[in-house]
C-alpha cells in the first residue's frame, strides 16, 4: 500500500509522507476536540432506547448496541490505543537500547547472556508470546503492556548491539579512547547519536505493529476490558451486530488502518530524514 506512493521524485515523496501523517494527526485531533468539548457524550453510559442508530447531528457516527456514541468511543479508544502503544514502545525502546549498548560495548559473557535471552524471545512469534504472557498474567492492561515490552525490546537490543559492535571498531572510537574519554562518555556522546536515528525509525515503523497488536489482543479479549473503549475491543463488541449495523465494525477498522498507515508513512519519512548517507547536508 505504502509502496504505491513511492515515486522517484524524492522531494515530492517526502512531502507526501509527511503530509499524510500530519493530515491524519490533525484530523484525529480535530475529531477528538470536537467530541470532548462539543458533543460531550459519556463514553460508557448505556441508553438502550437509542441503540444501533444511524448518523445524526448528535451522533455523527451513530450509536452502538448499547446506545453509546460511536464517535466518542472511537476517539477515547484511539487515545487508549495510541497512548498504550507509545508507552509500551517507549519502555521497550529504553530497555532494548540500554541492554543492546551495554552488551555490544562490554562484550564477553554479559553480551552472551543478553543475547541468549533475546534469542529465546525471538524463537517464538510475537503474537504467541504476547498471548501466552497475557494468559499467564491475566487479561488486562498491565499484562498486555508488559507482554508487548517483553517481546519488543529484543529487536531494539539486537539492532543497537550490532551497531555498537560495528561502530566500536571504528577509528573514532579508538580516538575517543586515546583522548582519555570514559566509557560512559563514549557510549552517550559517540555511540548514542549513531544508534538513536536507527532506533527511532525502527520504533516509528513498529508503532503501527504495536497498535495492531494491542487492537488484536483486545479483539480476542486479552487486552483492554469492557466497558473501556478501545478499537480492537470495539471491533469485537460489534461482531454480533455485523449484519444489522456493519458500520459499527467499519469505523474502528477504518480508524486502525488509517492510523497505522499514517504512522508507517511517518516512519518512512523519518528513515529517509535520518539517512545521512543519502545526501550531503552542508
Amino acid at each position: 500500500m505504502i509502496r504505491l506512493f513511492k515515486q522517484p521524485q524524492t522531494a515530492m515523496r517526502y512531502k507526501l509522507q509527511l503530509g499524510t501523517a500530519v493530515l491524519t494527526a490533525a484530523l484525529l485531533l480535530f475529531l477528538y476536540i470536537y467530541t470532548a468539548f462539543v458533543l460531550r457524550h459519556d463514553s460508557t453510559l448505556t441508553n438502550l432506547s437509542i441503540r444501533l442508530q444511524g448518523s445524526s447531528l448528535m451522533h455523527p457516527l451513530g450509536t452502538d448496541h448499547l446506545g453509546r456514541d460511536v464517535l466518542t468511543r472511537l476517539m477515547l479508544g484511539g487515545r487508549q490505543t495510541v497512548g498504550y502503544s507509545l508507552l509500551a514502545l517507549a519502555a521497550a525502546l529504553l530497555i532494548g537500547t540500554a541492554s543492546g549498548m551495554i552488551a555490544g560495548f562490554k562484550g564477553g559473557w554479559l553480551d552472551r547472556i543478553f543475547m541468549r535471552i533475546a534469542d529465546g524471545f525471538l524463537a517464538f512469534p510475537d503474537m504467541i508470546v504476547v498471548i501466552v504472557l497475557s494468559g499467564l498474567l491475566g487479561p488486562g492492561l498491565h499484562s498486555m503492556i508488559t507482554a508487548i515490552v517483553m517481546v519488543k525490546w529484543v529487536s531494539y537490543a539486537r539492532v543497537v548491539r550490532t551497531t555498537v559492535i560495528t561502530e566500536s571498531r571504528q577509528d573514532y572510537m579508538l580516538a575517543a579512547r586515546i583522548n582519555g574519554l570514559s566509557p560512559a562518555n563514549m557510549l552517550s556522546r559517540h555511540l548514542l547519536p549513531h544508534v538513536a536515528g536507527q532506533v527511532l525509525v525502527l520504533a516509528s515503523l513498529d508503532l503501527g505493529k504495536v497498535i495492531l497488536l494491542i487492537s488484536s489482543l483486545s479483539y480476542i479479549g486479552l487486552g483492554v476490558q469492557p466497558p473501556t473503549p478501545e478499537w480492537g475491543a470495539m471491533l469485537n463488541d460489534s461482531r454480533p451486530y455485523f449484519q444489522l449495523a456493519p458500520q459499527l465494525m467499519l469505523y474502528p477498522g477504518l480508524a486502525i488502518v488509517l492510523l497505522v498507515l499514517s504512522v508507517n508513512m511517518l516512519g518512512d519519512y523519518l528513515r529517509d530524514y535520518f539517512d545521512v548517507k543519502k545526501e550531503v547536508r552542508v
Binding site: 577509528d171 580516538a175 582519555g180
Partner: peptide
C-alpha cells in the same frame, strides 16, 4: 583504566594514519 584515562590525551597522545575516521561523524 581510570588512571590511564586521565593520562591519555593529556600526557601521552596518539595520532594515526587514518585521520578520516579519527573524528566521530556526528560531532
Amino acid at each position: 583504566r581510570s588512571n590511564l584515562r586521565s593520562l591519555l590525551g593529556r600526557r601521552m597522545s596518539y595520532i594515526f594514519q587514518d585521520y578520516q575516521a579519527a573524528f566521530a561523524p556526528f560531532r
